[in-house]
Amino acid sequence: MMSQQTRMNVSSSPIARRDRCIVGFDGSSASVMALDWAVTWAARNHREVHLVGVVDDEAGALGGARADDRDRAQAQLLSLAFALLAERYPGLVVANRLVTGPVASSLAAAARPNDIVVVGADKAVYAHGQFFGVRSVQLAALVSGPLVVVPAADLRFRAGVLVAIDGGPESSRLACIGAEEAMARQCAVGLVHSVAVEATLEQRHLGELVLREAFEAARAVAPGLEISRHLANRRPAEAMLNLARDRALLVMGRSRRNAAPGVGGTLHEVLINANVPVMVLP
């Protein structure tokens, strides 16, 4: 295991000392975009940034010399990224670490309960990186805290936060977190709740009540924030991905309605087809 850390102009906030932003980094374009997203978020929320590189030994096919070369290359990537962050963001607490093992479980193990884990996702180049596609689904099932999956897409002109509301007991909390993210970005927040295409008038009315309750919770957090509500007559994942096409962030919950391992079908579909940074909350 290899690690480095730098502390320059460290904030005295207890959040900065306790909670961290864990970034899966393998040098791919997807992981670079994830790191850019994480640095911006961490600076805004007074979090440390910890780069974690994982040497994946699942295949077990490399000989000793090639394995050593791979380890050195990964270590060099981490050191370079570490040095660049320390130079460009002198007020940020930065650390890095290289670990060995299965990618998803190793990255999940590197995070503490209050840490936020950030990874990149790029469906187009599956063979060239480690932290995307199915990896994000595996991580969603393994990490106990927040997870952010950042797609390899042009996010420069994105604005707005979208919050998926499922009507469960945590809906108001999700709406509040989405409102806080929108305030930090100085943008609007949208709330979306889905009902079946064949929904009855009573079911639609219940959907409107769910959205209204979430709306009031978000407005209590940010009275001056622009908040919109969307009752969608389509599958939840389809509604989220459609409305999030031009947004900067999608906030959704990680369902724990059953004890089975893995994630629910909606979260699985969203992560596999992510067209927006997705913040998955427990």
Rank of each mutant, 00 (worst) to 15 (best):
R97M: 02
S255K: 13
Q130H: 11
G224T: 10
F132T: 09
L250I: 13
V221G: 02
I177R: 11
L249A: 08
D122H: 13
G53Q: 02
V161C: 03
V54C: 02
H50D: 10
F131Q: 05
S255W: 11
I22D: 00
H193P: 12
I15V: 12
P102R: 04
A182Q: 07
A86S: 14
K123L: 12
V94A: 07
V23R: 07
D68L: 06
G167D: 04
A239I: 04
I227Q: 01
A121T: 09
S3L: 12
D246P: 06
T6L: 04
G190Q: 03
A42F: 01
L174K: 10
V280S: 03
V210I: 14
F82A: 03
V55A: 00
Q130F: 05
L241P: 14
R70A: 01
V99D: 02
A59C: 09
L107N: 05
G133F: 09
S31W: 02
V118L: 07
S106V: 03
M183E: 10
N96Y: 08
A124C: 13
V210Y: 05
Y89C: 11
P151L: 00
L98S: 02
W41C: 00
D69A: 07
F132Q: 03
S12H: 12
G262E: 07
I22V: 05
N258Q: 12
E269F: 15
V103R: 15
T266H: 13
M183L: 06
T100G: 00
P113W: 13
V23Y: 02
M8W: 12
G101I: 06
R156A: 10
V270N: 03
L98M: 05
G178E: 03
Q76Y: 09
A104E: 13
V197D: 02
D56Q: 01
G160Q: 06
G190K: 02
D36F: 04
A67W: 10
L225Q: 11
G264F: 11
I272D: 04
E87S: 14
M183I: 14
R229D: 01
A248D: 08
R18Y: 15
Y89H: 15
Q76A: 09
P113C: 08
I165F: 04
R47E: 02
R44Q: 14
G253T: 04
H193N: 07
L243Q: 07
V197W: 15
A260V: 11
A108T: 07
A152M: 15
V221M: 14
L78A: 01
I165T: 13
W41T: 07
N258A: 10
L107Q: 05
G53I: 00
V125S: 13
S79E: 11
I116K: 03
G91K: 06
H268C: 14
L51H: 08
A217W: 10
H193M: 03
A75F: 03
R135T: 07
R70N: 02
